[in-house]
């Protein structure tokens, strides 16, 4: 059995660096033999969470970084993403499935993370995102 892994990395506010970090974390899931469904869910959530930190948090500022820490074992993967931006209030993000916002080209990242993660929480005024996915989670739950 593979021993639990703790990993920390800090990246500049660059989405290419975010993608590289994401690949590193996904390869960890593959080492722990998580299912394709779990990997899909976590890859999507990592993409949304890390990109949000770079784009909306740090606003691509060259002097700001995104810190990522990950803990993974046989049962779950937990990732914490911190940015150095001004923060935001998650409750203020409009529901992108409402008729008013359904045709907006952006604003679906938080919805997707909440659908695919067993635990998705913003702390520190929106600057710190905690993401957890259990092994063989049944999420997402679809209504139809």
């Amino acid at each position: 059995m593979v021993s639990p892994v703790h990993l920390e990395t800090t990246i500049p506010s660059d989405t290419a660096e975010g993608l590289a970090a994401q690949e590193k974390l996904v390869s960890l899931m593959e080492r722990f033999e998580y299912s394709g469904r779990d990997v899909f869910a976590m890859r999507l959530s990592l993409e949304e969470g890390i990109t949000n930190a770079i784009r909306h948090g740090n606003k691509f500022a060259a002097g700001k970084v995104v810190s990522i820490s990950c803990d993974i074992d046989q049962n779950r993967m937990r990732v914490v993403v911190r940015d150095q931006g001004d923060g935001f209030e998650p409750a203020d993000v409009p529901d992108p499935t409402s008729d008013e916002f359904i045709e907006r080209p952006s604003g679906r990242g938080l919805l997707l993370m909440r659908a695919y993660l067993d635990h998705c929480e913003y702390r520190d005024g929106g600057r710190c995102l905690i993401m957890e996915r259990e092994r063989n989670s049944l999420l997402p739950t679809l209504n139809d």
């Binding site: 890859r43 999507l44 993409e47 045709e103 907006r104 080209p105 952006s106 679906r108």
Partner: peptide, 15 residues
């Protein structure tokens, strides 16, 4: 795989 940013392009294309 597809991110929400890609969905945005599909919506703009649809429009």
């Amino acid at each position: 795989y597809l991110s929400s940013a890609a969905l945005g392009k599909l919506i703009t294309m649809h429009k």
